[in-house]
Design a protein around this nucleic acid. Sequence first.
RNA 1: GUGGCUGUAGCUCAAUCGGUUAGAGCGCCGGACUGUGGCUCCGGAGGUUGCGGGUUCAAUUCCCGUCAGCCACCCCA
Length: 433
Amino acid sequence: MHSQALPGFRDFFPDETTLRNRIFTVWRDVAARYGFEEYDGPPLEPLELYTQKSGEEIVSQLYAFEDKGGRAVALRPEMTPTLARMVAQRARALKKPIRWFTMPQLFRYERQQRGRLREHFQLNMDLIGEAGPLADAELIAAAVDVVRAFGLTAADFRVRISDRRVAQALLAAHGLTGPQIVAAYAQIDKLDRDPPEDLVQNLMRTASLEEHAAARVLAVGDIRSIDALRAAVSDASIDPDTVSPLLECIEALASMGLADYVAIDMSVVRGLAYYTGIVFELFDARRTMRAICGGGRYDGLLEALGGIDLPATGFGMGDVVLGELVRERGQASEVTGAVDLFLVAVTSEDVPAVLGLAHELRDAGRRVEYALKAQSVAKQLKLASARAASQAVLIGPDERARREALVRDLATGEERRMALSRLVESPSRPADR
RNA sequence: GUGGCUGUAGCUCAAUCGGUUAGAGCGCCGGACUGUGGCUCCGGAGGUUGCGGGUUCAAUUCCCGUCAGCCACCCCA
């Protein structure tokens, strides 16, 4: 292993590039189905774009350096600041709601683990200018449809949905104030990973709470159904208007037929402080992997970043965890070779004819390969099947004399003679594709 | 950034207690097969045992360091 890519960076071999392209294709297809337009920005940005509003943590994990002009720059770790800048430039001219998506390569300098590298591609879909819950439902549905497009079902993945406003109201109803609420989020976020006793102890310490109070606060994170949510809201005498967006969002997803995929889960916190409303995560049903996708409503952020006060909601879905999931449980992609036709020169005198035919076929859009040196017919056919070509086209002295070719179907072994002119004119796709 | 585990051929893995020339399967190349592929059989190439140091008559094996991968913490765009 003399040399390899930098830690956390990937070489994409053809197999892996095929999977990556498949992911990109699905991302674009699904985004198009939802009427989203693609945009992009620079991979290198001024460092201050991230130091202004992002947390210390993000800044410490930036790939940052000084360029030759003495500018402090950074590889983009996220797309939202760029999006905010771009939207701000044309906010007045853009018809709302704005539906934009992008698939940037993002960079973060941190220790890599499975499902988490220093570089990845991420589908970002954002809906800007609409504060209502149908906007949130729209994005959640799009995220679900991306994963469904790989043949995965509710047996493979789920969406957990929460709402910052509801969580905040419930915690406030327990008497918690600013810093205590932050501390409570930190522990609630760990509910599915750590023993509850530990979390209660942590919470008693970090939020200065009595044991029974800490336990009741943690119970907010255990709300996993609409009924449990209604009960908790009723017990805490919370304004029904606070809860209605979340309920409407869930109902909207049910109307779309996606009820099997979604569930309320008040333990979904999402790390970022800027989320202000409905938040959600997609995760694999066996919970053996990291979240596939995370997002939520971030009203207020665009004003902070770009000076334009528009409500917004969006999500990011990385190619790494999604790729693992698809590889593990997704529909196998159809195995297709890189070529349709493999041309075989029976003798070395037939090579010029093969070259001529190959180029005619390529001009006609066919995917064609032939041996690059004189080889036995057996050898050439061996290469043809290794390439998964659908047909081999044999040109020998006999064929040349009659201006025809012997076309062999490599799957069935059937052979038939065909005039060269017909071969070039035949459909650019073989019958089986 | 902190801690734990792991590192042998392109891939997946062997190699007895520290002991002779580090093996196998798959893959790759060639041959059986100069007008017919997949299958089969035969042969071949491919290794600084991650790297550096130490202990020892002797290190893939034990020790230290380092790099990389995995896992946990941190954090999660």
